[in-house]
Amino acid sequence: MRVLHLLDHGLPLHSGYAFRTRAILKAELARGWEVAAVTGPRHGPAPDDEEVVDGLRFFRTRPVAAKLPGLSEWREIDAFVQRIHQVVKIFRPDVLHAHSPVLCALAGLRVRRWSGVPLLYEIRALWEDAAVGNGTGREGSLRYRVTKALETHAVRQADAVAVICEGLRGDLIARGIDPAKIAVSPNGVDMALFGEPVPQDAGLAAQLGLEGAETIGFIGSFYDYEGLDVLIAAMPALVAARPAMQLLLVGGGPAEPAWRAQAASSPVAERIHFLGRVPHEAVERYYSLIDVLVYPRKKMRLTDLVTPLKPLEAMAQQRLVAASDVGGHRELIEDGVTGTLFPADDPAALAKALEKVFCMRDQWDVRRKQARAYIEAERNWFVNIARYDGLYENLAIKMA
């Protein structure tokens, strides 16, 4: 089986998108398939038109000069189509596997018409809702409606569709898409990267002044929908209940200035630590310092429909997890078994839930083991990748 993946971006860039892609490609190689990827213009400049990163073969599309909104996207698709054409002639794939956003699917559909190679379109998030979530779009706007229409068109035209969670599957079915056409390929964890938890980094704890502290934290991108303002607002009540409490925030993003200002004005400002972005290879050191990873996502279409990756990585690291009860979290976390769920957008409820977690230390080991067992059985990438077997084989038969 020869599979060519069509990507918005990829390694060596660091993002949840790039790391999910890495896990998929690595797992497919381990199954004996021949795998390559083409990144689109949005990946940005690359040292070569073709390169190998972490043992994975990437073909690059050169960036496109920015034009008017709308026109730029179509120029990007044109450039991406031309590059995919070139790569198809070189790699001769059995299947094209396009990953959201929809620009990748639209380029893949044009290449399919020329080459006859069947197309699987995998949706990780709906582009129109992602724009609302990161503050660059507005639900119901003209751009939102056009993007949604393009997404629906791409799904209808693709030979098969995969989504990362049941929330997205339900949304597509509500649009009139045949349920039999949609497979669920959930987020998973590359156990080679996150499989073995590391002991607490005592040196880093001392450097940050955390000896003897109780710690909660967040590691990820700072977008408004992640709800860290709710977590910061919960800190005074939590410190009042647990005087040794400290909050560690690792990462960065558009919402950081507002959250830093909020934290600076908090009566417990000295307990809230912004640690900035850290190299991917150093992330485990920071996981080792945090007793409970907290994911206070706000309730909206994006967070109700899409499952995040970070809580799974934390569970693989045998860290305790607490999260808001949005739909995406409810698909991943069983309250009181593999983690703790609390009402979204409610600082008081968040503080009360975390206080309860710290009062139940005698149950921590059991919960860690239950969460780890769930990851190994259902969210291990080398298990999940088998879901593509039937999809690829059916598409390859169609091509023949």
Rank of each mutant, 00 (worst) to 15 (best):
L11C: 05
Y17H: 10
A18R: 07
F19N: 11
F19Y: 09
T21F: 04
A23F: 09
A36V: 02
D49V: 07
E50N: 04
V52N: 03
G55Q: 05
R57E: 06
R60W: 13
R62N: 11
K67M: 04
G70K: 12
L71G: 00
R83H: 08
K89N: 10
R112L: 02
S115R: 01
P118N: 12
W127I: 07
N134Y: 14
N134K: 07
S141N: 08
L142S: 11
L142V: 13
Y144Q: 05
E151N: 08
T152A: 14
T152I: 15
H153N: 03
A158D: 10
A160P: 00
V161E: 06
E166R: 13
L168H: 07
D171F: 13
A180S: 14
V189M: 07
D190L: 13
G203T: 10
A213S: 15
S221C: 05
D224H: 15
A233L: 08
A234H: 01
P236D: 02
L238Q: 08
V239P: 03
A244Q: 15
Q246V: 10
G251E: 00
G253A: 10
R260E: 12
A263Y: 03
V268F: 02
E270M: 05
L275C: 10
V278S: 02
H280T: 06
H280E: 06
E284W: 13
Y286L: 08
P296L: 01
K299E: 15
M300D: 13
R301F: 09
L302W: 02
L302D: 03
D304E: 15
A323F: 14
D325F: 03
G327A: 14
I333P: 00
P343N: 06
A353M: 03
E355D: 15
M360R: 15
W364D: 04
R368F: 03
I375L: 12
A386W: 04
Y388P: 00
Y392C: 06
N394F: 00
